[in-house]
C-alpha cells in the first residue's frame, strides 16, 4: 500500500514536471520576442538571445520614425480585419439563422453543398480570385484584401450549431407579440447567440489578421500593405542592408499583444468554439 502511494506521488510529480516544462517551452519564444524588442537594432546583431545589456525603447521609437510605414501597415491590418470581421460575422449570422430556424425548400441541400466546399482549400482558388480582382482593377487596394475574406462557411456552420439550441418557443412568442422577422432576429436571436457570435468574431479576426499568402500577392504597394506582409521584408538580405531585428521584434509585439489580450479576455468561449469548428469533418 505504501509503495503504491509512493508510486502515485512519483507519477503525479512526473505529470506536473511535463506540464510545466511544456508551458516553459511555449512561453519562452514569446518572452524572447518581448525581451528582444527592448534591445536596440545594433545590440540585436550581437546579442539576440540574452537579456538586453541596455533596456531601451529605441526599437519602439524606430517604429514611429525611421520605419513609420510599419505603423501605417498596422493600421491597414486593423481596418481590413475589422471590416471583414463585422461584415463576415453579420452575413454568417443571418445565414445561420435561416438554416437553424426556418424550414424552406433546398435547406438541406444548400447546407450540405456549403459544407462540401470546405474541402476546397482557399489556396486553390487564388489564381481565379486574382484574375477576378485584376479584371475589376482592384489589385493593390484595401478592398481586394477584405472582400474575399468576408464569407466563411465555417462561421455559418458554427453559429448554426449554436442556434439550433435556442428554443423555438422564444421566437414564436416574439412573433405573437407582433415582432417582424428582422426585429426577432435583432432582439431575440442576436442576444441569445451572443457567446458564439463574439467568439466567432475573434476567430474571424485572427484569421484575417494572420493572412499571409493572399495579401503577399495582391498587396505589393507600400501604402495598402498589411503588417503581416511588410514585417518580414525588414529581414533584407540585400548587401549593405543590416537587418533591423530590434524593430522587427517591436513590430511583432505590436501586432501580437492586442490579439493575446483579446483572446485572454474571451479564452473560454473561443476555445469552446474551436472545438465546435474542428468536429465539422
Amino acid at each position: 500500500m505504501e509503495r503504491n502511494l509512493l508510486k502515485n506521488k512519483i507519477e503525479y510529480g512526473i505529470g506536473m514536471i511535463c506540464f510545466i516544462l511544456v508551458c516553459i517551452l511555449v512561453l519562452a519564444p514569446m518572452l524572447l520576442m518581448v525581451v528582444n524588442s527592448f534591445k536596440s537594432n545594433s545590440e540585436m546583431l550581437r546579442n539576440d538571445s540574452g537579456l538586453p545589456e541596455v533596456w531601451t525603447l529605441e526599437s519602439y521609437k524606430s517604429l514611429f520614425t525611421t520605419y513609420s510605414s510599419l505603423v501605417k501597415h498596422f493600421y491597414n491590418s486593423i481596418i481590413i480585419s475589422i471590416i471583414s470581421t463585422i461584415c463576415g460575422t453579420f452575413i454568417c449570422t443571418l445565414a445561420a439563422y435561416a438554416f437553424a430556424k426556418y424550414k424552406f425548400r433546398g435547406r438541406e441541400s444548400i447546407f450540405y453543398v456549403l459544407l462540401a466546399t470546405l474541402m476546397i482549400p482557399s489556396e486553390v482558388i487564388i489564381p481565379g480570385q486574382y484574375l477576378f480582382f485584376a479584371k475589376l482593377k482592384l489589385i493593390n487596394t484595401l478592398a481586394v484584401q477584405i472582400l474575399p475574406t468576408i464569407p466563411a462557411v465555417v462561421g455559418v456552420y458554427m453559429i448554426r450549431q449554436y442556434m439550433l439550441g435556442i428554443p423555438t418557443s422564444l421566437i414564436e412568442s416574439a412573433k405573437i407579440d407582433g415582432a417582424g422577422h428582422m426585429r426577432t432576429f435583432v432582439t431575440i436571436i442576436i442576444p441569445s447567440a451572443k457567446p458564439i457570435i463574439s467568439s466567432y468574431m475573434i476567430l474571424h479576426f485572427l484569421d484575417v489578421w494572420q493572412n499571409y499568402t493572399w495579401p503577399l500577392l495582391v498587396a505589393t504597394k507600400q501604402n495598402i500593405m498589411p503588417i503581416m506582409v511588410s514585417l518580414p521584408t525588414l529581414v533584407d538580405s540585400v548587401i549593405g542592408f543590416v537587418p533591423v531585428w530590434g524593430t522587427i521584434m517591436a513590430g511583432s509585439v505590436l501586432c501580437s499583444i492586442p490579439l493575446i489580450i483579446v483572446f485572454l479576455l474571451n479564452q473560454k468561449a473561443v476555445m469552446e468554439s474551436v472545438i465546435l469548428g474542428s468536429i465539422k469533418g
Binding site: C23, V26, P29, M30, Q210, P232, S256, I260, F263
Partner: peptide, 16 residues
C-alpha cells in the same frame, strides 16, 4: 497557456 501560440501569426512565429 498552451493555446496561446495559435494567437501568434505564423509570420511572427517564424520571425521570433
Amino acid at each position: 497557456i498552451l493555446f496561446l501560440p495559435r494567437v501568434i501569426a505564423p509570420t511572427v512565429a517564424a520571425l521570433i
